[in-house]
């Protein structure tokens, strides 16, 4: 019972990380209609920036927003100067997969060149320990969960109640119609990539706090991120939040009652089942064309 509860505790932490990561991933798909398979490597860039800053004596809660903003800027730059030129050049959606994987690979190994292949971890004072029942979390872990929850709430408000957020949803729904309505789609796209990049970066720093990482860690995080995003219906931010909760808590609880190393297996199982049974995700009302070749 207590292993189960501690699994839930760590599951919440993982869900916080996954929520930030999966929402960013799904927003990028929604707005640009491509899977950014370099996403996990961008996360890792943030982890290394956060690591470098904290090593230089910067407080981790200061390093987190700095790293997040840096990755936000990186995401906009890569989208605008690499992905979009390829798209406008008319490469089929297919080759975009190769483009994003190329970028991810280049980033992964550039990190290795600059930071070495060794494992690192962002070290910090975890603060005092809080427990309720068998659920145990440190202060810093609670802060992480709260930050993710606030980020999700803010993003929800942005999408539902601001002109920019509605324009993002409109562009994601139909970019031609958005432009025909006078929405500056290119600018909206840049903003969406920046916001999603910031979430990606925040997730990366959280990753660096949670676990030790090396340049290849990023790619392994693509498994639960993709699972969470696909579970919620790819391109749908609210779905990704729900997906992150399910995959995060589910995989940690599974890991707690079996072997820790198998938590990705449950994520992949989720991905596979959703893909086979309901490729449009678990939420009602998604259009199947979101996922299947129109």
């Amino acid at each position: 019972m207590s292993t189960l509860l501690s699994g839930v505790g760590f599951g919440l932490l993982t869900a916080a990380l996954l929520a930030l990561a999966a929402v960013g991933f799904t927003v990028q798909f929604g707005i640009t209609n491509l899977f950014n398979l370099a996403y996990a490597q961008f996360m890792l860039v943030a982890a290394y920036v956060g690591y470098t800053l904290t090593n230089a004596g910067v407080d981790v809660w200061v390093a987190l927003p700095i790293a997040a903003l840096a990755v936000g800027a990186l995401s906009v730059a890569v989208n605008r100067f690499v992905y979009m030129p390829f798209v406008s050049r008319g490469r089929a959606l297919f080759s975009m997969v190769l483009v994003t994987v190329s970028v991810g690979l280049a980033v992964e190994y550039l990190i290795e060149v600059f930071a070495g292949a060794g494992a690192q971890q962002i070290l910090m004072n975890p603060g005092s320990t809080w427990s309720a029942g068998g659920l145990v979390l440190t202060t810093s872990q609670i802060i992480i969960v709260v930050i993710a929850a606030i980020a999700m709430a803010l993003f929800h408000l942005l999408l539902r109640h601001t002109r920019l957020g509605k324009a993002m949803r409109a562009t994601s729904s139909d970019v031609s119609l958005a432009r025909a309505c006078g929405i500056p789609a290119a600018r909206v796209r840049d903003v969406a990539w920046f916001i999603s990049g910031v979430m990606c970066g925040a997730a990366g720093v959280v990753l660096g706090i949670n676990v030790s990482f090396d340049p290849t860690t990023g790619s392994s995080y693509l498994v639960p991120i993709a699972a969470a995003a696909v579970l919620g219906g790819i391109g749908r931010p609210h779905g990704a939040m729900l997906g992150a909760l399910v995959v995060g808590v589910g995989s940690e609880v599974f890991a707690a009652i079996t072997t820790p190393s198998y938590k990705d297996v449950i994520a992949f199982g989720v991905l596979l089942v959703v893909m086979l049974v309901r490729p449009q995700g678990i939420l009602p009302g998604s259009l199947r064309t979101d996922v299947v070749e129109p």
């Binding site: 509605k166 949803r169 409109a170 994601s172 729904s173 139909d174 031609s176 119609l177 958005a178 259009l287």
Partner: peptide, 8 residues
């Protein structure tokens, strides 16, 4: 065709 934003 595609004359409204389906998700809005």
């Amino acid at each position: 065709v595609n004359d409204v934003f389906n998700r809005l």
